[in-house]
């Protein structure tokens, strides 16, 4: 069953009350949200496996804390889209502002356009696929999960990186402290190809370069004081 909610008429809290009341086996599995007009925190904290499509541009923290749901934004999003996502899928058809997918534990975030600075900051298991570029300090302190960038990356990619896996097809303005380029092996090509397919982004998996942690900042070492 499909439900349409027009945010020009319905307060956002009312939409959330409806979405949060949904059970796992609800028949209302398809939701369309009209006139988001850049409002903040649209479709946050969802737990039911429903699909929510937002027609227009959303503001900050769209689809934050998502669990199980699929949220599609037919437009651009502001800061912190899919922040702390646990599972499910968030797809942005336009561009995302800063800190897309920040601290995410799981699920898949797809940004079809560009993502701005600090994309995937402190990512903890989320997978992020960006069709365009990412801004500076992306994957900062990334702990787990995979980030695939089909375009270019800004300065200080993967600064203070733990075990998040980074793949960039285009240029990288600079690597952050303790982030290094690593060899792209067959298993990595397979992994990238599988994620690109899930993200429905068309790119040649073999054309990406791999970046990861040199693992030299895990413990303080006076010989590396310059890197801090």
């Amino acid at each position: 069953m499909s439900v349409t909610v027009n945010l020009a008429e319905t307060p956002l809290r009312e939409l959330h009350a409806q979405l949060h009341a949904l059970h796992e086996d609800s028949n209302e599995t398809s939701w369309e949200v009209l006139n988001p007009r850049g409002q903040h925190a649209i479709a946050v904290g969802l737990t039911a496996p429903v699909e929510v499509t937002i027609r227009g541009h959303a503001g900050y923290y769209c689809a934050g804390m998502n669990q199980n749901a699929t949220v599609v934004v037919d437009g651009h999003v502001g800061w912190g889209v899919a922040e702390n996502m646990m599972s499910g899928l968030v797809r942005v058809k336009g561009n995302a502002s800063q800190a897309a997918g920040a601290t995410g534990h799981g699920g898949l975030l797809v940004v079809e356009g560009d993502a701005a600075a600090r994309c995937g900051i402190s990512m903890k298991g989320i997978d992020i696929v960006v069709g365009g570029d990412v801004g500076h300090m992306s994957a900062f302190m990334g702990q787990a999960g995979t980030m695939i960038v089909c375009g270019n990356a800004g300065e200080a990619l993967g600064d203070s990186l733990y075990e998040a896996k980074l793949f960039v097809r285009g240029s990288v303005d600079g690597l952050g402290a303790d982030c290094v380029e690593k060899e792209m092996e067959e298993a990595h090509v397979t992994h990238v190809a599988e994620l690109l397919e899930r993200a429905q982004i068309n790119a040649d998996a073999a054309s990406f370069r791999r970046y990861g942690s040199a693992r030299k900042l895990y413990n303080f070492n006076v010989d590396h004081a310059d890197a801090y």
Partner: peptide, 22 residues
């Protein structure tokens, strides 16, 4: 600062929208 302020401009649906680079 945010899209909220642009939402009512005439022709916004066909505007080119972008975030200025730092």
């Amino acid at each position: 600062s945010e899209f909220r302020s642009l939402a009512d401009l005439p022709g916004i649906d066909d505007a080119v929208l972008w975030e200025p680079k730092p």
